[in-house]
């Protein structure tokens, strides 16, 4: 099988001469969930944010190397196009407070100036909300503001908003760390469902979550990718000593 995403010598630095992500090379395959783990400050979020060019928003951040999405270098493409192809879900649920639930799902379209017919809109909203299992809960309160929902619902709304754009890859930056266990559980089930259609990369500091949902795991330490492989294998027989120490709780 061909990888959907290839990282080649990827480095990211906030201050010159000091790499927050240091020379990472690896492949990610379609319809899998990859978990990125590591102690805080190890560069896992930085790596994730490089993939959809979020670093472009901050001029002092430098990204070098290559990120190939289906063979095309993301770093040389138009950033706005990249962000539509590579969706992102953030740690804090961030539905747009001035928009209704309905408009939140369609925010990607309206922000990009894409006009849709009413029927198309309804269809996208229903489909997206159904795919995050939120449809039944909100179908009667579509015109309410997104900020009225519970934290878990808000996060699922944010996932729906991202899915509505039909991205190739879905990036998630600790999507459940601000949520209660029940909501977390729902989102995890959702991810297992979503991987049938999408490729998912999720940053997590929760090892058991990584073990529960991911096919492959990456372990990062001080900006370097220490180990990347099958999750079960990594949790049972880590190749690297530092991975083992982290997984057994020696540090982290």
């Amino acid at each position: 099988m061909k990888p959907i995403l290839e990282l080649k010598n990827l480095s990211v630095s906030y201050t010159p001469g000091k790499n927050a992500v240091d020379d990472v090379t690896t492949d990610i395959y379609p319809n899998t969930i990859t978990a990125i783990m590591g102690p805080s400050g190890c560069g896992k979020s930085t790596l994730l944010r490089a993939i959809n060019r979020m670093h472009d928003l901050y001029p002092h951040i430098r990204t070098t190397g290559e990120i190939l999405l289906k063979g095309k270098n993301v770093l040389e493409m138009d950033a706005m196009k990249v962000r539509r192809l590579v969706g992102m879900v953030f740690q804090q649920p961030n539905p747009f407070p001035t928009m209704s639930i309905y408009d939140n799902v369609l925010a990607g379209y309206s922000l990009n100036g894409i006009r849709l017919k009413r029927r198309e809109k309804d269809e996208i909203v229903e489909q997206s909300l159904k795919s995050v299992a939120l449809w039944d809960e909100v179908k009667d309160v579509m015109s309410k503001r997104g900020s009225f929902l519970s934290g878990g619902q808000q996060q699922r709304l944010c996932i729906a908003r991202t899915l509505a754009m039909r991205p190739e890859v879905l990036l998630m930056d600790e999507p459940t760390s601000a949520l209660d266990p029940i909501s977390t559980n729902k989102i995890e089930e959702l991810l297992l469902e979503l991987k049938k259609q999408f490729t998912i990369i999720v940053v997590t500091h929760n090892m058991s979550q990584a073990a529960r949902i991911s096919d492959n795991s990456m372990f990062m330490y001080l900006g370097e990718l220490i180990e990347h492989g099958n999750t079960t294998q990594m949790f049972t027989k880590p190749k690297n000593k530092r991975t083992e120490e982290y997984l057994t709780g020696v540090f982290g």
Partner: peptide, 13 residues
């Protein structure tokens, strides 16, 4: 859908 996105240049302008 992607044709409609081709107005990227206008939006950037």
């Amino acid at each position: 859908m992607m044709e409609q996105v081709s107005s990227t240049r206008v939006r950037k302008g």
